[in-house]
């Protein structure tokens, strides 16, 4: 119902529109640029002479005969075995999400239904834990993991990521379960269910929207993690993010930068698809903790 006064173009409105437009360009342009550039050779992508080269691909045509080349992707995926890192990431992400959600739903449900004061203290402790920089925690693990000979393997990283993920998962699922009416599980208990049976038969069937939203963020945490993976995984178990970093460290040679560019685009693609399909859930998850208070 826009009234005449509301739809008039005022200077303030004009400013606010152009500001939004500017932001959208700033947000999207780097991704377009890198995606486009990943099909060029390094002399075009990082062209000191003329940035137009990156668009037209002058050097790419000269070197490969075509304006687009898959050399970077070939180098990263075939020559540098990037698929292997993708497989490791797949394993880490899958188990982290499953275990985090299992632990988180049980704990979040208990916190939402318990009126005791210690439930609140657990939530406060979780908030403090959430604030700990991951690097400080990693410096606490390293010595012991070496001592116990569990350093460098995927299960260690998975369990660490699950733990780091718990504070956030707990808060989110706690506020989600609070919105499911108490009467539902309590009437099941009146009918003779135990607490766990009530949870299993009554709560579990209705909890999926909240669990999926929380799961998306667990996925992002595990997928995007660099700090834990770079310190706790040996080279043969590297996940994609540390692998991209080691491309940068060891391959600052002509041509190989493009491997890293191709790897970066490959690593961003799954996230792009994720946003495409789950935009609504991501937005509701971002704001769930805040708006409901």
């Amino acid at each position: 119902m826009a009234t005449a006064a509301q739809s008039r173009m005022t200077p303030l409105k004009l400013f606010s529109y152009s500001f939004v437009l500017l932001w959208l360009i700033v947000a999207a342009f780097p991704f377009f640029w890198t995606f486009w550039g990943s099909f060029k050779v390094q002399a075009d992508f990082l062209s000191k002479a003329d940035w137009m080269n990156a668009l037209t691909g002058a050097n790419t045509i000269e070197q490969t005969g075509s304006a687009f080349t898959g050399q970077g992707y070939h180098g990263a995926w075939v020559l540098e075995d990037f698929w292997f890192n993708f497989k490791n990431t797949g394993i880490v992400v899958f188990f982290t999400v499953i275990i985090s959600l299992t632990f988180g739903t049980l704990g979040g449900y208990a916190l939402a239904r318990s009126g005791f004061r210690y439930a609140f203290w657990i939530l406060m402790a979780a908030l403090v834990f959430r604030a700990m920089p991951h690097m400080t925690l990693v410096s606490g693990y390293l010595l012991w993991f070496f001592e116990w000979n569990v350093w460098g393997i995927l299960p260690t990283t998975i369990i660490v990521l699950v733990a780091i993920n718990q504070p956030f998962t707990l808060w989110m699922l706690h506020s989600f379960f609070k919105n499911i009416p108490k009467d539902m599980d309590e009437s099941a208990m009146v009918d003779g269910c135990t607490r766990f049976q009530a949870f299993w038969h009554v709560i579990v069937p209705v909890m999926w929207p909240g669990v999926i939203t929380t799961g998306l963020f667990s996925f992002l945490l595990a997928y995007n993690d660099f700090t834990v993976a770079v310190m706790l995984l040996s080279e043969e178990n590297e996940t994609i993010i540390p692998a991209i970093n080691s491309f940068m460290g060891t391959t600052q040679v002509e041509g190989k930068v493009m491997y890293a560019v191709a790897a970066v685009v490959s690593a961003t693609a799954p996230l792009f698809v994720l946003i495409l399909f789950f935009q609504r859930q991501i937005v509701s998850g971002l704001t769930a903790g805040a708006v409901k208070g």
Binding site: N224, F226, I282
Partner: peptide, 11 residues
């Protein structure tokens, strides 16, 4: 807008 936020920080 979600792109820069959800992209891996290192990337």
């Amino acid at each position: 807008s979600l792109l820069p936020f959800l992209v891996t920080p290192l990337v």
